[in-house]
Amino acid sequence: MSGKKTGTDRNPSQQGSGPSWLPHLFLVPFSVATLYPVLYVVKLALSGNDGASASPIPTSISMDAFATVVGNTDSHGNWLFGQQLLNSLVIAGLTTVVGIVLACTAAYGFARFEFPGRRVGLLGFLATQMFPGILTMIPLYVLMQKLGLLDSIAGLTLVYATTSIPFCTWTLKGYFDTLPRELEESAYIDGASRLTIFTRIILPLSAPAIAVTALFSFMSAWNEFVLAYTFLSSEQAFTLPVQIRNYVGDKDVQWSLFAASSLLVSLPVMALFYALEKHLVGGLTAGGVKG
């Protein structure tokens, strides 16, 4: 089902008609429109808010905003940026590990076994993607409050990890489905157990798919905003997105700090995104179309 089967061999939908500059007439303005806001953020980060100007070219280059963001400390002198970076890393990392471990086994179970409850399980996983986040957020908020996990990264990790399982499971199941069964059957005949087959054959074969899924899981946890914003209340526990939002909070607005921190936080995941984007499309359409 993935749309990249044809590879580099392009299949033109139409014979080229009109002058060769015509496409660029459309493409250039759109490219400018997509790039402009991002370039402006770079300018804000480097030259600060230097008054009304439409040019996205930095007027001066100063690392002050970056230094302020990275050196952010609280009133007790604790290094907030380091703490928050650590929070984000730990949450996203743990989410990925827990999510992937559970999703791998589940995906293999769904892909290779026929058992009562399989359909319910798969459909149930699909349905979770449609639950409005706020509906589960309210009880989770109360639950975390009762457990004393409300303002902690442990609580958030738990929530992120489970919400990532269904998507990871569907993506991985889609990949496992494409692996030929003959491989396993011959191993089975040679006396290998199910577990051996899973750990020695399936997992190594799927390493690329697992890596991609893991990175997506990491990215979505890294970029999550609403739950973190609602559950976390102390600066020590903030993840980076919450901190970024607070730079442009209701009381004091510091656009240059926002710009600098946005760049720090999003450049790594943007790079990841570009590296993985092709796989994401395949996963989404494969999972989204049908079971």
């Binding site: 999703a103 086994t105 589940a106 399980g121 149930g124 979770t128 509906l135 589960t136 489970t162």
Partner: peptide, 23 residues
């Protein structure tokens, strides 16, 4: 099959489906 699927099902059950129905 349940050994493979169980842990993920239990986790999503407790942290997604139960909150959903509680909601």
């Amino acid at each position: 099959p349940y050994a493979y699927v169980g842990p993920a099902m239990a986790a999503t059950g407790v942290l997604i489906f139960v909150p959903f129905f509680v909601g």
